[in-house]
Design a protein around this nucleic acid. Structure first.
Lengths: 237, 237
DNA sequence: AGTCGTCAAGAGCGGTGCTCTCGTTTATTC
DNA sequence: GAATAAACGAGAGCACCGCTCTTGACGACT
């Protein structure tokens, strides 16, 4: 019967989820390198080999955690964007920035897993990219919206990209329709700048300098907004 | 005799260096997580416990590698800067950017060790910070030089930083004397942007987008230069 | 010449990922 | 309802890891 089959599959799904949850908790406290299948099994009251019925290897468990992580930060960014007035493009950009940073500070090990050094010997499968770009999609939509509303003023201290970059720009443009080549690369610069900042802060590169980090971060992201041509509030000029 | 004592200490120093070299080679092929004292010992024809005569723990070996790494990239950046005309501030900035990126591409695992996720359970000792800022020192000097030469035009689409950031700016200013608060944060933004870009490229975040990476990188770093007020060559305007 | 510190070697501890086998339970098929 | 097949937990075992402790040999200094 389907009912009984789903009974078995239901407990399987539940156990799979429980393993992932415990693994995520371990990840949060120990980091990616400290993720131990045996420890997970111990906490579940199972024997270590039984875990392999649910995840064929440690890397597969890692992949599951990575996908979950991308979805978590992606959803977080989506919510932050949705909570901001749709016409306030600068506000949406700042909301996204803070969402990324806040999530990273709240889940440092997961952030490190997603945006830090790749786990040695681990090759992220293609399944991850779909989840991986959820936040980037939001970012692109903000820019497209701003562009459509004519709010992307291009006074442009930014230099024009060389023509040889047109192909690359076209590819990225699928995430931000309507944006010019110049705008695309300003966007890439701002996006990498955002994650560069967060990584620096999280990975201890700002060692003892920079106390007032949230304010400094927001200011720098305003800088990046200015570079992209997203309007600056008059008060800050 | 001092001669015989130094003989002993010389072979000790040699062995220490050989251990570090082998470890670095392993690091380059396996990554930080794959660094194994036993494997190093095996390759040296030693027994694993003998390694502990030279490095009290795996973390201490890691620390040595980290310091070496910071010095390597720092020296690389210093050389790139020194090889550029001292008055060509934009050129020096670009040279530094490419030096960082080229070194990172040539030594991905070492870069990951320095600027990627911190090794779990590993706390970088204070000895590292001195070596860690060698590249940043070069960066600060370029900005100071440009400022002194009056080449830091402040047309400034960049917003002014809030006064509450004055203390933080003052701290960072020790690396770039003479730079204004606004300039300091533009610099931080550009610096984190540089490493954000390199990390994105190296850690696989630019998955299948962006083929023409060197050109795109240089263009983005030109963007950052513009943001800092470092002159843009007329040709690119 | 005798003492003392340094060294390589080995055994061993508790941990890891992963594989294989062995009964048992569950679900499907006849 | 019985037989077959699949899924499952438990356990032993392999090769590896970082690290500790002990032992015996060698070299340096008094």
């Amino acid at each position: 019967m389907t009912a009984s089959r789903t009974a078995r599959e239901r407990v399987r799904a539940e156990l799979t989820k429980e393993i992932a949850d415990i693994a995520r908790r371990q990840l949060a406290t120990e980091g990616a390198g400290g993720l131990s299948l045996r420890a997970v099994a111990r906490e579940m009251g199972m024997v270590s080999s039984a875990i392999y019925r649910y995840f064929p290897s440690r890397d597969d468990l890692l992949t599951a955690l990575i996908i979950d992580g991308y979805n978590a930060i992606g959803e977080c960014v989506e919510r932050a964007d949705a909570a901001t007035d749709r016409g306030d493009h600068l506000g949406r950009w700042l909301a996204v920035c803070h969402a990324v940073r806040d999530w990273a500070l709240a889940n440092p090990h997961e952030y490190a897993l997603l945006y830090g050094s790749p786990v040695p010997g681990y090759q992220a499968p293609m399944d991850t990219v779909e989840a991986a770009i959820r936040d980037t999609v939001v970012f692109g939509r903000i820019l497209s919206d701003a562009n459509e509303a004519g709010a992307l003023d291009p006074p442009g201290i930014a230099p024009a990209p060389p023509p040889s970059l047109a192909e690359d720009a076209a590819l990225v443009r699928s995430l931000m329709p309507g944006i010019s080549d110049l705008g695309v690369f300003r966007a890439i610069n701002a996006w990498t700048g955002l994650f560069g900042w967060v990584s620096f802060e999280l990975f201890g590169q700002f060692n003892n300098t920079l106390d007032n980090r949230r304010t400094a971060f927001e200011h720098c992201m305003l800088n990046n907004a200015a570079l992209m041509g997203l309007g600056i509030p008059e008060a800050a000029r």
